[in-house]
């Protein structure tokens, strides 16, 4: 799922610059996800579903979020996996 269209256009001089940019972006993103561990997050999902949960972990392909104490419209689910495809955005206050 990594965009490769840009890299095919870049020349040999640009490649290290692009690789460095990708690495800085990725590292910052991973750190940001890690900083959310055990924090309350609000998920905005498709079909206007809004739920709150305690953030646990994300897989590295950003396909699933593992959360606890998920407040669903029909009650609390102690442990849950949320599909990232279902999510539009999520917010965390710190």
């Amino acid at each position: 799922s990594i965009a490769t269209s840009a890299s095919s256009e870049t020349n040999a001089e640009q490649l290290p610059i692009e690789q460095h940019a990708r690495s800085v972006l990725r590292e910052t993103f991973l750190r940001c996800l890690l900083s959310m561990t055990n924090k309350k997050v609000q998920f905005l999902m498709h079909e206007r579903v809004k739920v709150e949960a305690t953030f646990g972990a994300s897989d590295i392909d950003v396909l699933n979020f593992q959360v606890s104490d998920l407040h669903t419209p029909i009650g609390v689910q102690k442990e849950a996996l949320i599909r990232c495809q279902d999510v539009i955005s999520f917010t965390c206050d710190s």
């Binding site: 799922s1 990594i2 965009a3 990708r22 800085v24 972006l25 990725r26 910052t28 993103f29 940001c32 900083s35 959310m36 590295i60 392909d61 950003v62 990232c84 955005s89 999520f90 917010t91 965390c92 206050d93 710190s94």
Partner: peptide
Amino acid sequence: TVDPVSASLVLVDFKEDGGASVQV
């Protein structure tokens, strides 16, 4: 930042009390 794997954006909002809210 933008995650190069999922293209997800991380937006930060600074609050008056010094805290920040993070939105992905």
